[in-house]
Amino acid sequence: MANQSQAAKTRWAILIKNQPVRVLLVEDSPGDVRLTMEAFRTTNADVNVNVATNGVDAMAFLRKEGDYFNAPRPDLILLDLNLPIMGGREVLASIKEDDNLRTIPTVILTKVEEPADIVSSYQLQANAYLVKPVQWEAFESLVRSINDFWVTQVQLPQEPA
């Protein structure tokens, strides 16, 4: 159910910050990229989604290396576990070991539902662990929950000085 006052509050918060909320989606499946972007578009048009299709690109984006020298710092990272070149577990460990990057909330969004992966992701300090639903309605509902919690309610950190 849409909540007018929350929606107004979100818009107001975005106006104050004068910039959209930036999400980095690290995902190699073009289908899942498309679904996630469509779900965000219908949920909150003020969310700006960037995509990295493997772990090496994700780290280059976050460290503003090479082609990504101008990349914005994301407010939130959605990270798949099974990725080519450099896997999601390694990306998560690299983010959380980096003093500058570790404050960025990093949410695992994966098809993997192995108990060992859930526990080890939390041990590596993933901020949350989500399993991609197969059904479109459930996927859209998941993105709506992500938006409602992380974009509307949470106080996101600014870049450490």
Binding site: P115, I118, Y122, A128, Y129, D148, F149
Partner: peptide, 23 residues
């Protein structure tokens, strides 16, 4: 609203560590 959002995200959508078995 805030508690509803916490409940919806963390207690409905998220896979909690318990789903990896209690340690």
């Amino acid at each position: 609203n805030l508690i509803r959002s916490i409940s919806d995200f963390w207690l409905t959508k998220v896979k909690l560590p318990r789903q990896g078995g209690r340690s």
